[in-house]
Design a protein around this nucleic acid. Structure first.
Lengths: 141, 141
DNA sequence: AATAAAATTTATAATCATTATAATATTATT
DNA sequence: AATAATATTATAATGATTATAAATTTTATT
């Protein structure tokens, strides 16, 4: 138990971030809940454990994580900013019916793009939209 | 001149959209300005020609174009929804320094993703971020 | 250990893009 | 021309995010 906290603290310290209780809990949350939570989801879950938690702290902390590469922002749709603790290149699929966002592995690094020869690429994003198998099955009726 | 208007009208009529003056002008704008304009950019440009233009009309019309595949929405960054009249699959590169968004051709359709075998994919998006050649050149100083 | 300084968190207000609503204007139909 | 349907406009409402300043907690210094 404390082992877990210690590991999370270590991750923060390595990034020169002081491991406050709030920061540890938010980091823990996005690591354990890989379903691309929104700020609201994170806040509403953690307020149960940390009754004094402020939404501003969640925003500030996620911004901090973003800038230190502990989290990535997903902007698949406007009006819903989501956070992802997996920072390696992978694709996202959003189901237009149920809204679920699925991760998928894709060979993004080998995507052929010769016209960007003189561009410095820092970040690659791939997202698809459509209908997931669950919803396809449902709509068979 | 009227030729142009007629063509745009035709495009709208084919989609069962009544070709009002506002709609024609907005369609014309996003076709001639392929730099991925925001609603504000579109509105501020067109207000000069159409002094009574309302921002709600721009929103409504773009929503209409989106649903009829006359425009695509780009959500590279939250807080800035941009519109693109090119609806075929292509990639977008956003320069983190100057903010310019570049189009690029990429072989998106052949991107290998076997884990989505049972998903119905309707829309594929690829966007990169980094620094464009212009800004790389500037920063050499 | 007490105090001061720094950093973090919190509560609240401000901002701003988008959406909703209702009134007005335009276009189509009889 | 009168009526109905559609589109546009002006305005208000919403809601997510950011800014600000006060309060709290942590850290450093004496």
């Amino acid at each position: 138990m404390n082992q877990k906290i210690d590991n999370l603290s270590k991750i923060l310290i390595e990034k020169n971030i002081k491991p406050s209780y709030q920061r540890i809990k938010i980091l823990q949350y996005i690591n354990e809940n890989i379903n691309h939570p929104t700020v609201d989801t994170i806040f509403n879950s953690l307020i149960k454990e940390i009754p004094t938690l402020s939404k501003a702290t969640v925003y500030n902390t996620l911004e901090l994580f973003k800038s230190t590469n502990l989290a990535k922002v997903l902007t698949i749709e406007d009006n819903e900013t989501r956070y992802d603790s997996k920072v390696h290149s992978h694709g996202h699929f959003k189901c237009e019916s149920c809204g679920t966002i699925y991760d998928f592995e894709a060979d993004i690094d080998n995507l052929a793009v010769d016209s960007l020869k003189y561009f410095k690429i820092k970040d690659k994003n791939v997202y698809f939209k459509g209908i997931c198998p669950k919803c396809l099955e449902k709509n068979k009726n």
